[in-house]
Nucleic acid binder design. Structure first.
Lengths: 195, 195
DNA sequence: GAGACACTAGACAGACCTGTCTGGTATCGT
DNA sequence: ACGATACCAGACAGGTCTGTCTAGTGTCTC
């Protein structure tokens, strides 16, 4: 939880998490083995298992870290705007930024979910939490923006958000987020004008 | 290519492809091993390797089969409608049907892509072909419907289509397709009214 | 009848996977 | 000085993976 003081060397757990984050996201949870992770982290295998217990728990920690970073990045991005309308559309601005970074490979939760078999596993749990948070955020922002039916607008925004993420991933088109933003703007105007 | 005569027993290749289709889609390309497939198909391992050569080529054949079935199902679905507007929106109707079937697990191409590492591999090739076909279809339908900028509308429709697929997969909400359809209808009206 | 063909059953090799365990080292606080 | 803690290096076990190879069976055609 507590961020290590910058002078102190990163602990084994932190280095493992950093290595897992890079490798799992870039190549997939299933493809990347334990050995690759400990090698990149410069950490002994025993340290991994004493810190996390199993690979699945490492995957959970990786996804929880992704969720936390995503949450913070979005909230920080929204602080730039003061009016509700820009704040709602700002979620798509953040997506546009993220999806145009070189290593972008789509939604980490969807990707992990596509690989994982089990229902009720760590991947599904964190993934559901992440989606619920996003939907809640959209609902809240829609209400603040004066939408007649915030939950209904949030459902529409989820589709646009997911679609833009897929488009950026599969077609290498970072512009999908900007396009989704413009459609979202139209939906928002329609939802508020109907008041 | 040619469908075997119904009286004749299915050949080993056909049974392998059928087993691969079920297992790969339900559990993922990486998770499902060769042994599971030959067991379900009731086929010897040597037959698999004499028919396909490698697992990757079996995956390619699986995805090509998915693409072909998808193409046919959509085209058949669109034949029900005679006016361009309904035909364009009909693509979302077909998605609504597919995404409400019990075994629905999202886009087979995205799922396979999330698991595969390599760029330029079989998965990426077939996946790109599938997406290009979809985009071309949307563009054509948009032009027929009188859209001012068919390609631009197609880009928007792709986002809605992908987003609905993700929503149905991740949240278990088959209604996402119907929602996407209604948004698409609004975009289409706007694109044609602007003429 | 004989050979070609498609197929089955299963052993096998070699690689890779997760997870455990042993033993050694460095750095703390007391 | 000394014990506790955190960590490293790597062997090891038991399993699974892809892919190859041998040997045998049924079926069709000539």
């Amino acid at each position: 939880m507590s961020a290590a003081s910058p002078t102190k060397k990163a602990t084994a757990r932190e280095r493992l998490l950093a290595a897992a984050d890079e490798l799992f996201y870039a190549e997939g949870v299933h493809t990347v083995g334990i050995d690759r992770i400990i090698e990149r982290a410069g950490v002994a295998k025993a340290s991994l298992y004493s810190s996390f217990g199993s690979k699945e728990e490492l995957v959970r920690a990786y996804l929880e870290g992704r969720h936390e970073i995503r949450r913070r990045r979005i909230m920080a991005g929204l602080e730039r705007f003061d009016n509700p309308r820009d704040r709602l559309l700002g979620v798509f601005d953040v997506l546009a930024e993220v999806s145009s970074t070189p290593g972008f490979r789509g939604c980490a939760f969807y990707n992990a979910s596509a690989e994982s078999v089990g229902k009720g596993g760590a991947v599904e749990q964190v993934s559901n939490a992440n989606r619920a948070w996003t939907r809640g955020l959209f609902t809240e922002l829609a209400r603040d923006a004066g939408a007649a039916d915030p939950a209904a607008l949030a459902d529409q925004l989820m589709i646009l958000y997911d679609g833009a993420s897929v488009g950026a991933r599969m077609d290498g088109q970072p512009g999908a987020a900007a396009l989704a933003r413009s459609v979202a703007a139209g939906l928002l105007d329609a939802a508020t004008a109907a008041r």
